[in-house]
């Protein structure tokens, strides 16, 4: 049985308690996309300011559960300073980690070269346990799907 500690890892609770890059940015010059989890009503806004081809600033707004909030907080830290393409790469790795198809339902990676640490996701690895709680995957990916939308607006 998957226990609560599998889901609510310390790093996650830390990001929930003190979320990074919370707030808003003025649009324009920043761009913004809004995401909804239709199941639970969570809402998130992702603001990006792209300067000289890199994400110079990112802010997260909205409300949500510990999983959606901490995931968005970690995401903001992970993509800050990257190019839009670099951010898309992190996004891809993260979504891969979240996809049940790549894992047994117990959340363990199926392929051996997909060990924790190998993904370059850093803190985000803590969210791996979410896969054991399929209903919560939508929470964990809310911010990322919204990032995906806002990246589309960068036109790069």
């Amino acid at each position: 049985m998957a226990g609560l500690e599998d889901l609510y890892r310390e790093v996650i609770l830390d990001h929930y308690r003190s979320p990074r890059n919370r707030g808003e940015l003025e649009t324009p010059p920043a761009i913004m996309a809004e995401g909804f989890n239709p199941l639970c009503g969570d809402e998130i806004q992702v603001y990006l300011l792209v300067e000289d081809g890199v994400i110079a600033e990112i802010r997260i707004g909205g409300q949500g559960c510990s999983i959606s909030q901490s995931s968005a907080s970690m995401m903001s830290a992970a993509v800050l300073g990257r190019t839009p393409d670099g951010a898309r790469e992190v996004l891809r790795s993260f979504k891969e980690m979240m996809s049940i198809h790549e894992h047994g339902l117990d959340g363990e990676p199926i392929s051996t070269d997909d060990q924790p640490g190998a993904s370059g996701l850093g803190d985000l690895e803590a969210l791996r346990g979410v896969v054991k709680f399929p209903v919560r995957i939508k929470c964990a990916t809310l911010g990322w799907n919204t990032l995906d939308q806002v990246l589309d607006q960068t036109g790069t």
Binding site: L4, Y8, G64, C65, I67, R136, C139
Partner: peptide, 9 residues
Amino acid sequence: IHPHDLSQV
């Protein structure tokens, strides 16, 4: 506590 977290516990 967010309702989602509450119901999870």
